[in-house]
Each structure stands twice: as C-alpha cells, then as structure tokens.
Design a protein around this nucleic acid. Structure first.
Lengths: 184, 184
DNA sequence: ACAGCCATGTAACTCGTTACATGATTAC
DNA sequence: GTAATCATGTAACGAGTTACATGGCTGT
C-alpha cells in the first residue's frame, strides 16, 4: 500500500513531525508552506502551494497524515497531523534509503564556464551580483538561525542552519578570491 | 521564432561552442553526453541521453545548431555544430537574462534536519558516508581539472573546476566539524 | 563468439511550476 | 472600504527521468 514517496513528500512529513512535538492541532497547507519557506528552501526546495496541497492529499490517501476540518467561521480549514504510521514511514525512510549525493544547480558557475564569450567587465559583474545575492541569502538564514536559538527541541535544525551559514560563508570567500584572481 | 529555451538548452549550446573552437566536425549526441558528464554534471545536471537527443532536435529546429549526417559504414551518425545564430543566442542569453540563485538539493542536510528520529550512531554514519562520497566526487573533479591544465582556451572551465574543488573542500571541512561537535 | 561501447530515438510517466478560480478574515 | 493575508483547490503545461526498442562497431 505504501507505494514509493518522493523525497519532497518525506520532507513535508518531516515538517509535520516537528509540529507534532509541540502537540498542536496540526498545520494547514498554508502553514506547511510557510515552514517550508524557512527551512526546506535552503537545502531542498520549498514546493509551490499547489504542490503542498497535492502532496498532503497523497499523504492522507496513504494514511501517513490525518486531517481535521475546522470551521471557526464560514471558512473551511483543513489541518494535517502526522499519524503513527507516518512516523514509522519517515523513520524507515531515514534508515533504509540510500542517500544521494547533493545536486547543485548553479547558474553563475554555468555562465562563468562560458566566460570567454563575455567581456571581463561583464564577468566581474556576474560574480559581484552573485556575492550580493549571497549576502542577502545568508542574512535570511541567519534570521532563521537566531529564531532557533539553543532550544534543544530544534537542535538538529539549528545544526543544519549552521551548516548552511558556513556554506554561504565559504562560497563568499571562494567567489571573492575568484574575482580577485580574474585579471591574469 | 527563437522562443524561450531552458537553461539546460543553453548549457548544451555552451558545450558545442567549446567544440567549435577546436574546429571539429561537431559532436554526436553521444559525445555531448560525455562532455556533459565531465563538466555540467558538477554544477548543473548532465541530462539523460534521451533528453540530449530531444534538446538537439529542438536546437536544430530553431536553427541554433546544424547537423551533418555521416555514414562511414552502415551506421548513421549525426554530428551537431553550433551556428552563428546559435552563437548569438548564447551570447545574448549570457548578457540579458537575470541570473537565478543556485539551487541546492541536499539529501544529507535534509535527513540531518530530522536527526532526532535517528540514533546518534546513525547520524554519524550518515555524515561519515557523505564525507566519503565527497572525497570520491572531489577526486573525479580533480581528474577533470588536471585534464584542463593551464591551457588558455579552457581558462574559464578551469576556473569553474577550481571553484568546485574549493566548494568540496569547504564542505568536507564543515562536515568534519559537524561530526566532531555532535556529542554535546 | 561475446562483451562492451557507440549510437539513436520513442513512449510513458513523474515532479513540479504557473495560471486560473474562488472566497473568508483581519488590520488599518 | 480596502488591502493584505489566510486558505484551498484544479488545469494546463514543461522539464526531465526511466523503460523500451534497435542495431552497428571494436577489441579480445
């Protein structure tokens, strides 16, 4: 019955697991998207709203999440919570599956490859623009990191955020050197 | 006429540009795949064979590449070369398009996020396994880098390869620290 | 003769996106 | 009252993968 799920499905299930720990009534699709935007976005992807909803129905169909419909006013809101079956599925995915090597889709590096078709000025602008974007990204992730603090409940998310921050720092250093060494 | 192409299309066009500089008769789809495997793979993706062929027909339909059919024996081989129109398209893509921030799909970081569902031993194995994979990857890229040498024709590919090597080195450092700091 | 590489393509399918469509609630 | 945010879903499409199907050429 539990046919193969995509990694993204498991990622979303992971978000629900964290919510579950806070013994809440669950998350709406909308809220799942918000969580994804501050976590998954940095080292996986934050799926589009439409995909979140499709993914939630899929998980529900497979019994990995349960949904409760709320009607506080006139609006219908559906809250999702992970089920014990979902917990099991997630844990077994964590332990059993072979872990793929990360995939990097780097438009800047791709363009730099063809640097001989650009003016030196243009190449420098390309890399400079990337550095700026990197600074912004890093600041966004730093905000997330600050939010996590040293709360032991989110020890691992904090570790991952630190990882991301170190990665952005390294990338910044590399690109700075790259720019400096362009002339000769 | 030149409707929007995907980044992957331009990446493949980029491979043909390098081949063109060597004034060859062009590349077969099969050879394009081989080139992609040693360059694009590290910072974009190396498309499946089937996609290479589809992409080549698309580029051909749009006049960005020309194809020559060879029949040395009984087998039909089609070689692709970039056209002046393709050169223009590539150059204008390089200068005009807004450059997206890199996308990282990191299965290891994603799993670490849910570290509280794993045993400490398992977490360590996860990260350790990643470090090993990283070493392999790095060696593969180093081979490519060595091939490029200091030939000025491939100055930019060499720069990008160096970038990749520095990235893998940084990642290795970060993960090593991460493993060391897991206990407390 | 047999393995392994060279070579090309189609078909079915999945994942994910954007566009479309709709409407309630909240804060100013 | 009106803009922003909350909230949910469907439809059409694109990009990319695996599976399928076919066969020539080369080295041992």
């Amino acid at each position: 019955m539990t046919s193969e799920l995509s990694t993204t499905s498991y990622a979303l299930l992971g978000l629900l697991v964290f919510d579950d720990a806070t013994s809440s009534t669950g998350l709406t699709g909308y809220e799942v998207k918000q969580r994804a935007d501050v976590t998954l976005r940095f080292y996986w992807t934050s799926p589009a709203m439409s995909q979140i909803y499709t993914e939630m129905s899929r998980l529900h169909r497979q019994g990995l999440v349960e949904s409760v419909v709320e009607r506080p006013g006139r609006r219908t809101t559906r809250r999702y919570r992970i089920t014990p079956s979902g917990q099991t599925a997630l844990t077994s995915w964590l332990s059993s599956t072979q872990v793929d090597f990360p995939i990097l889709k780097h438009p800047v590096a791709l363009r730099l490859l063809m640097g001989h078709l650009m003016t030196p000025d243009h190449v420098e602008k390309l890399l400079g623009g990337y550095r700026e974007a990197l600074v912004d990204r890093r600041a966004e992730l730093q905000d997330v990191r600050d939010l996590l603090g040293d709360n032991p409940d989110v020890k691992f998310p904090a570790l991952v955020a630190d990882w991301g921050l170190a990665y952005y720092a390294a990338e910044d250093k590399i690109v700075t050197k790259l720019i400096a060494g362009l002339g000769p």
